[in-house]
Simulated assay, not measured.
Amino acid sequence: MGFKRAKVIGGAAVLAVIAAAGSVTTVYATEDGASPADGSVGEKAGTPEKIDSHVVDKDDSHIRIELKDKRQVSLTYAKDKGLVERHRPAEGGTWSSPKTIYKTKAESCQGIDARAHGDTVAVTANWGLYCSDGEPPQESVAAMGAGELTEWDTAESENSDGWPPAQIYDGGDRAEFVAKGPHSTTTLPWKKGSGFGDEATVYEPIPGRFVGSWRAEDGSHRVTFQQAAAGKPATGTIETLTGQRCLGSGVVTKKSADGVELGNFTIKEGKQAKNCPPEVFEHFYQVETADGDMQLMELGKPPKPVATYKRTGD
Results as ranks from 00 to 15, higher is better:
E148C: 05
D113Y: 12
D133Y: 10
S108N: 12
C131E: 04
E158L: 15
L129P: 00
T150Q: 13
D113L: 12
N126A: 09
E156S: 12
D153R: 10
T120C: 09
A116F: 07
L149P: 01
N126S: 11
I112F: 11
A116Y: 08
E139P: 00
G147T: 02
T104A: 11
T124E: 07
E148Y: 11
S132D: 05
P137V: 01
A143P: 03
D133A: 10
E156G: 08
A142E: 08
A155Q: 09
A143G: 00
C109R: 03
E135S: 09
Q110V: 01
D113S: 15
G134T: 01
S157F: 11
C109K: 02
A146Q: 12
C109T: 01
P137K: 00
A114M: 13
T104E: 12
G145C: 12
S132R: 06
V141Y: 06
S108C: 05
E139L: 14
A106K: 08
S157W: 07
I112R: 06
T154N: 09
D133P: 00
E156F: 09
R115M: 13
A125H: 03
R115H: 15
L129N: 07
H117F: 15
D153W: 15
E139C: 00
S140Q: 02
A146L: 06
T104L: 13
H117G: 01
C131Y: 02
H117T: 03
E151K: 13
H117C: 04
P136A: 07
S140Y: 01
G147M: 13
A116P: 09
G145D: 11
G134N: 09
L149K: 07
G128S: 09
G147Q: 10
T150N: 14
T104M: 11
A116M: 09
A125C: 06
W152C: 04
V141G: 02
G111Q: 10
Q110A: 14
G118C: 05
V121Y: 08
Y130F: 14
L129T: 00
I112S: 07
R115L: 14
T154I: 15
A122S: 10
V121D: 05
Y130M: 12
C109F: 03
A114C: 10
A143L: 09
V121H: 03
A155P: 14
A146C: 06
S108A: 15
V141C: 07
V123D: 05
G128Y: 04
S132G: 05
A125W: 02
A155H: 10
W127V: 00
A155S: 15
G118H: 02
G145N: 11
K105F: 11
P137S: 06
T104K: 08
A114S: 14
G147Y: 11
P137W: 04
